[in-house]
Structures are given as C-alpha cells and as structure tokens.
C-alpha cells in the first residue's frame, strides 16, 4: 500500500493506492496516527486506486472515525470504485461515512 498526502488549507487529502485489508490496515492506521498526533481535523481519503477492501479495512476506517471524533475532527471518502462502494452499501457503512463521487465534491463545504 502506498499513501500520499497533499494539503489544501486545513484539509489533508490522503490518496491510498493498493488494497485495504488485514495485511495493509496497519499502514493506514499508522498514517492516521501521524494525522491525529499533528491535530489534523479534516481528512479526505481518496480511494480511486483501492481495488479491494475487507472487513479488517472497514474496521480500520471505523476506528479512525471514532478517533477523529474525539478531537472534533472528521473525514470523507471519495472516488470509490463501484465494487468497493458496494461493500459499504451491503454493510450499511455508507450511512456512517461521508462518501463522495469525486474529490472536488468531497472538498466542497468541508
């Protein structure tokens, strides 16, 4: 998994490349540790290059949501493939996360 980040004002856009699963979730968690310790409160996760997610990846995102909430932070997810999005729909996690079709839509009014 490769994670690159870009800053736009007070928002960090985090582009994830690769699968989000049992193997790679620790990398994602580590990246978010650094965001949280630097008090970053607005994060957009771009999933355009994420072809696969499993229940462990979903749990990592829930954990992040809970941790960000504690510092009054929030995050949005954008550019999911249809298949990955279907996993969020089946599990009803689309109700929990803010999911946007595009990065520019996710940036709007954040």
């Amino acid at each position: 998994m490769k994670i690159t980040e870009e800053k736009k004002d007070d928002i960090v856009i985090c582009k994830v490349q690769g699968e989000v699963n049992l193997d790679t979730s620790p990398d994602l968690r580590k990246k978010f540790d650094s965001f949280i310790s630097s008090n970053t409160k607005k994060i957009i996760i771009n999933f355009s290059d994420v072809p696969y997610i499993d229940s462990s990846g979903l749990a990592t995102l829930i954990e992040l949501l809970q941790r960000l909430r504690k510092i009054d932070g929030k995050f949005r997810i954008c550019n999911m493939s249809e298949k990955v999005r279907s996993i969020f729909e089946i599990t009803k996690l689309c109700k929990l996360f803010e999911i946007f079709d595009t990065q520019s839509a996710a940036l709007e009014n954040f």
Binding site: S55, E63, I87, I90, T91, K92, L93, L96
Partner: peptide
Amino acid sequence: SPAQDANLEKLSGRGVFLIRNL
C-alpha cells in the same frame, strides 16, 4: 446484524454477514 444502526460502529462481526450477502 452489523448493518443495524446500533452496530454500525462495531469493529468486528462483519465477516459472516459479508459471506451471506456475497
């Protein structure tokens, strides 16, 4: 069911649910 509102934030319990759905 992990898809119930009260369980949405649980960190586990989605494996069998996904299997049954897929």
